[in-house]
Design a protein around this nucleic acid. Sequence first.
DNA 1: CTAATATGCAACCTGTTGGTTGCGTTTTTG
DNA 2: CAAAAACGCAACCAACAGGTTGCATATTAG
Lengths: 111, 111
Amino acid sequence: MRKSGTPALQKTAPVFAALGDPTRLRLVAALCAGGALSIAQLTAGTAITRQAVTKHLEVLAGAGLLHDIHRGRERLWELQPSRIDEARRSLDAIAAQWDQALQRLKAFVET
Amino acid sequence: MRKSGTPALQKTAPVFAALGDPTRLRLVAALCAGGALSIAQLTAGTAITRQAVTKHLEVLAGAGLLHDIHRGRERLWELQPSRIDEARRSLDAIAAQWDQALQRLKAFVET
DNA sequence: CTAATATGCAACCTGTTGGTTGCGTTTTTG
DNA sequence: CAAAAACGCAACCAACAGGTTGCATATTAG
């Protein structure tokens, strides 16, 4: 007997917001493929400034999707496993809710 | 043999952006549970204006997540099944990518 | 030590967002 | 028909987002 129906779903908004930008999505993709990369490396291909990239990285970190590691004069960024797994579950939860709605809609239409 | 690696992933940014707002997430949740609702109904609980709600609904519609139906003097909104399913698959794709990254990270750590 | 790397910090700028108010229009309801 | 309900449209606003430039700082390579 699900009490609330739409419980902690609200907390996922920041994660979606963080992923809701093409540049940020590219950074995430790069980190998925590249492991831990420095700001300079992540800036390499892009047409934007290093400072802009830094801002994006901090937005992603703010949503708990990344974390940084200082090594020498460079600052490496990598995916935050635990948080990512958590975000994934949120996405699944939403998808499940959507599936329910979908079924109801289809059942309604096909009647 | 996935040719690009991060292909149409970029196209999902608008969807994430649309979901990246608490108010919008609430609207989606309400429509998941309530089927087709009018603007007035969707505005009911919220502290914001009807016009504000309308804007949010149009943002969601712009991302292809909703669509509207005019009935009499009211305008009903409901989830867009096909698009939602599509969005779900995008989310799964990202999650899969993340899982890969996760495994690599874990394998690296546990060595 | 000195030059080159890799960043950090802060000010600044412009376009977008989330919201509002005010008023006109279309349907219903009595 | 007149009042009420449910909207649409447009102007306007403050705050925020995405980016940039300029300059200072910390590491590393020669």
